[in-house]
């Protein structure tokens, strides 16, 4: 498939091992988005369009800075602007670069019924392989962050790739490369976590007592993380979920129930067949016809 220089850790709708001979050396990677350094310039959005060769339709001005207003098949990242009045009555402009979080335990991949349409590489990046996508939209139901979008052009699902093509050859994602304030950085997940910890300490000394790292455990952590001034209230950042989890409904739907159901169907068919062979068919015998004839004569007297 697309990136054979990387092992594949998980592959959608696949019950046998994914390609994984290049054991060992690939570290988990992560992108760290420091919302406290972001100035909302959207250079990253433009870089994403350029590298991935995407041009969304011209939208309408709805009176807010969010532009385009939402993610789409052509917009894999969108800056979301929230105005928050803090306890002192001051305005805080909380800007969050939205897009795929690259969950360690991705709900999209869990929900996907098409073999190999969603993969997770050995470095943790979750990627959609659109050539295998069947356009069912189950990834949308699986994602706890409302990220995947079905394109109106080809009815296939798209989202941020974390520039898997660039990362595979040792480059950083396009948005990281372009960010003028250094708000977006990229490296091993470990390194990003320690950088974040340093930054959080700094923020605390500057009056942001609740500053913290957003790396939600409910999805096994993410390969895109945020530094937030108000890590105690992620919802302030245009509805970032406080405790994202793959919905229990999706777990039931995609979990152990399916092999069990499959087994029940096979058992029922086997039972029907075995019983047929054991007891033989239910045939109508000549004596049944005779009895019917007798009864018919009785009735018609």
């Amino acid at each position: 498939m697309a990136l054979q220089s990387l092992d594949i850790r998980r592959r959608s709708a696949t019950t046998t091992p994914a390609p994984m001979v290049r054991d060992g050396a690939t570290p988990d990677v992560a992108k760290l988005i420091d919302t406290t350094k972001c100035i909302g310039c959207k250079a990253c959005q433009a870089a994403c369009m350029e590298w991935n060769d995407l041009r969304d339709d011209i939208g309408k001005n709805t009176g807010v800075y969010d532009n385009p207003l939402d993610l789409s098949g052509q917009s894999w990242t969108v800056m979301r602007f929230a105005e928050y009045e803090n306890e002192k009555g001051d305005l805080e402009w909380l800007i969050r670069k939205d897009g795929c979080m690259h969950c360690e335990d991705p709900g999209c991949l869990k929900a996907c019924p098409a073999p190999g349409a969603i993969v997770q590489y050995a470095n943790g990046i979750v990627d959609f392989h659109e050539e295998n996508c069947i356009g069912c939209g189950y990834c949308i139901a699986g994602c706890p962050f409302n990220v995947p979008r079905i394109s109106k052009k080809d009815q296939k699902a798209y989202k941020c790739t974390l520039c898997s093509d660039r990362v595979a050859v040792g480059l950083e994602p396009a948005c990281v490369k372009t960010c003028p304030t250094g708000a977006i950085t990229f490296g091993t997940k470990e390194r990003m976590q320690s950088d974040a910890a340093e930054r959080v300490e700094q923020l605390k000394t500057r009056g942001f007592a609740n500053a913290g790292l957003y790396d939600p455990a409910g999805v096994g952590g993410t390969h895109v993380m945020y530094v937030l001034h108000h890590a105690d209230r992620p919802g302030l950042y245009s509805g970032l979920p406080a405790d994202p989890k793959v919905s229990p409904l999706v777990r039931v739907w995609k979990g152990a129930t399916k092999p069990l159901a499959l087994g029940a169907l096979v058992l029922a068919a086997v039972f029907g067949f075995v019983n047929y062979v054991r007891t033989g068919p239910k045939e109508v015998e000549p004596e049944d016809e005779l009895a019917a004839q007798r009864e018919k004569e009785q009735i018609h007297g």
Partner: peptide
């Protein structure tokens, strides 16, 4: 399974008819 098992039922859904013995039984 039931349709295959009970002889005469599939042909009744094909041609419409059953024998009196089938109906009686």
């Amino acid at each position: 399974s039931a349709a295959v098992w009970v002889k005469g039922s599939i042909s009744s859904m094909m041609g419409g008819k059953v024998t009196p013995g089938w109906a009686w039984k």
